[in-house]
């Protein structure tokens, strides 16, 4: 017997005590999915929680996003940035105008080429106020996963209408894009470790600087 059939047989004989064939009738799950978590101000909470992770957050009106993006990159000392193909044209223009060397990922940059670039600028899919989490679904305005991983600075733009209260609402919004096969990256602050004497160190392998622009 092959391993698959043998394991499934073992599972079936281990579960001889289970008589109800329908899992949902057999075990009730008393949980209502997709509920919002009540909070006074979702955007305020998102800013507060993201700051708590030592990320830098700038909240601006939507029209000022291009300037905010360019300002934050310059202030962080960024000399070069890779931009995903679908990035907003006005942000791109502001970055170029700020004198930052812009790289495209078309054709795909090698890992070593990416490693030599200072920063990446992206949009995002959904953000979670209660946990200060930004979710990327790697649509064209965010690019493939390696872009937001190898450069040491990640500037991400979050639109106010993309911010939800808590994890359940976020998972609900992301279901369709997962069904299409997109990967997801959930980011809560910069890369961090507490592996040495439980002392928190911000910045290990992922981007050590996370810059967030919240567009109202």
């Amino acid at each position: 017997m092959n391993a698959r059939d043998e394991i499934l047989n073992r599972v079936r004989s281990a579960l001889a005590d289970v008589v109800q064939p329908d899992p949902t009738l057999d075990v009730a799950v008393g949980w209502t999915y997709g509920r919002a978590t009540a909070m006074p101000d979702v955007l305020e909470r998102f800013v507060e929680m993201t700051l708590d992770y030592k990320a830098l957050v700038r909240r601006v009106p939507a029209t000022e996003v291009p300037d905010a993006v360019a300002d934050l990159l310059v202030a962080a000392g960024v000399g070069s940035a890779v931009l995903p193909a679908g990035l907003d044209a006005t942000w791109r223009a502001a970055i170029v105008a700020a004198g930052i060397a812009v790289h495209e990922d078309e054709p795909q940059l090698s890992r070593r080429e990416l490693n030599a670039i200072d920063a990446v600028v992206t949009a995002s899919a959904v953000s979670i106020a209660e946990t200060g989490t930004i979710v990327l679904d790697h649509a064209p305005d965010q690019g493939r996963r390696a872009l937001t991983l190898v450069p040491d600075t990640h500037l991400v733009v979050v639109r106010a209408d993309q911010v939800v209260s808590d994890v359940p609402e976020a998972v609900g919004r992301l279901a369709a894009v997962v069904a299409e096969g997109n990967p997801l990256t959930w980011i809560s602050g910069p890369s961090a470790t507490s592996d040495i004497e439980l002392t928190r160190v911000e910045g290990v392998h992922g981007p050590r600087t996370l810059l967030v622009v919240l567009a109202d």
């Binding site: 200060g132 996963r145 997801l184 990256t185 959930w186």
Partner: peptide, 13 residues
């Protein structure tokens, strides 16, 4: 509240 990174992938993209 949340760990810094969570990756979710569905087969090959």
């Amino acid at each position: 509240r949340m760990n810094p990174y969570t990756s979710m992938w569905t087969g090959a993209t």
